[in-house]
């Protein structure tokens, strides 16, 4: 079964209580082989970048077995507000 952007968004929203998720299929022909995600969650507060990425990786462990390339950005709501303001 191909992994859809919607599926990734739903899972991150549910399991990491993400307040904002962007999912972009970055494979050349949008064949769901590579994804780029932006996750905004208060669960990232006080955590290092590595810990945040591990949270996302764990959440998507099953999906990542099928995905060839995966880029992620992990922000706290506060960082997200700052970034939007820029």
């Amino acid at each position: 079964m191909a992994i859809t952007a919607d599926h990734i968004r739903d899972k991150l929203t549910k399991e990491l209580a993400a307040v904002h998720v962007d999912v972009e299929d970055t494979s050349p022909n949008r064949c769901a082989a590579s994804y780029k995600v932006l996750v905004v969650s208060s669960q990232f507060e006080g955590k290092s970048l590595l810990q945040r990425h591990r949270l996302v990786n764990t959440c998507l462990a099953e999906e990542l077995k099928e995905i060839h390339a995966f880029e992620q950005k992990t922000l706290t709501p506060e960082q997200w507000e700052k970034q939007k303001a820029q």
């Binding site: 970048l49 590595l50 990425h53 880029e71 992620q72 950005k73």
Partner: peptide, 8 residues
């Protein structure tokens, strides 16, 4: 120590 991948 593991630092991370490309994004990190």
């Amino acid at each position: 120590e593991f630092v991370g991948g490309c994004d990190i």
